[in-house]
Design a binder for these strands. Structure first.
Lengths: 203, 203
DNA sequence: TGTTAAGTACACCGCTCTGTGTGCTTACCG
DNA sequence: CGGTAAGCACACAGAGCGGTGTACTTAACA
């Protein structure tokens, strides 16, 4: 019923409405936070009338949940589907996201909304679990002794880097990457076949 | 009335005003979040008139900053000043805070307020740095090769556990403690003298 | 006794927020 | 042409927020 572009009868309005709203969400919710971004401001930024916005989304809650769902492809498949890297390198590549992600929107949403039952909070939970699972799969592929554990550990490092980056206003991902390197070295039976380089953070 | 005491000049009013406000803050800001807790509700919980609250604090911002400052002693000295533990054990003890801290209020404040210039955000930053410094000191005491690095790493683990606990609604500190054990083993030149027990999480 | 500090009770202001109601415009299409 | 779906502009309701103003009460002291 919604999805414009090609309406049921072939309509094609400004086409963007929904897209522009979600696009504006990505920017504003991120820069200003969810609670500090009002629907008026958001609609203005999206160049969409408020009335239209509420025809596409039943309310802000639904919009926020949809907004969170828009991060999946870039992060998940962007890192894990790189066949040019060895499994080990893929695990480490998860920590190389400096310009893309100033801070984790899932953590931010969970904290801001503050209701574990909120659709967005539930999705954040699902997403975090999915990332840990992906890391575990890759860890298994890399030959880790206990891939589940390593996946969970690396996921914790990512979240720690995100949280710390936010609070301290300084990039904490290099530190996380250094820890990850240690954990990976410890978890993989040494003869992993791949490369043997070590990443030591000094300074 | 209630709890009596002695004021500056010998007055002894209800005594609690300020204390009760801060005490109510600890509970409500934590349970409901800062933004979702209004001054009306807070004053009602503290059994203090709103007028009185605004005579003790210039505004909510100041109250929030003060609220954060109330966490110091319990966490910082509670863990690091334990002379009955070896330095190594103290480093690991920082991850044993299950019932005391359901989630880190500093991260929550930084995310909720969303303004790095906010007094509370600045304090959160200072506090996190202080914790890392304390950890580094203890790491040095334990004979770590690069205490600064280890301190920063352990601090990141704590923040990661806090963030992940929040998002997933499940205690992530055991995982963080397991990582910490590995890092500490790797950083201390082996003959640390103390115990040699290993903490492996298999769950 | 009166003064004064501390607190109470409660209405109130101005603002912002989410969400609607209403009427108008634009475009497609038969 | 007229129908219809999408969208716009704009005001407005209802609620909650942070914060204030005002008048009253209580307790300590002199």
């Amino acid at each position: 019923m919604t999805e414009v572009e090609k309406g049921p009868q072939g309509r094609r309005r400004g086409r963007g409405a929904r897209e522009r709203i979600l696009s504006a969400s990505q920017q504003l919710f991120r820069e200003q936070g969810i609670n500090r971004t009002g629907m008026n401001e958001l609609c203005a930024a999206a160049q969409v009338s408020k009335r239209t916005a509420y025809q596409h989304f039943t309310g802000k809650d639904e919009l926020v949940a949809e907004y969170l769902r828009r991060f999946d492809p870039s992060v998940l498949s962007g890192v894990f589907d790189r066949t040019d890297l060895t499994p080990r390198e893929r695990l480490l590549a998860a920590f190389d996201i400096p310009p893309t992600t100033p801070l984790c929107p899932y953590i931010a949403a969970a904290v801001e909304l503050h209701d574990p039952q909120h659709p967005a909070s539930q999705y954040a939970r699902d997403y975090k679990k999915a990332v840990a699972a992906r890391l575990a799969d890759t860890a298994r592929e890399a030959g880790a002794a206990d891939p589940e554990q390593l996946g969970e550990q690396l996921a914790l490092l990512i979240d720690g880097a995100a949280a710390r980056t936010r609070v301290l206003n300084a990039d904490a991902f290099p530190t996380a990457a250094a820890i990850a390197a240690v954990l990976i070295d410890n978890a993989i039976p040494a003869a992993a076949g791949d490369d043997r380089r070590r990443e030591e953070e000094s300074g």
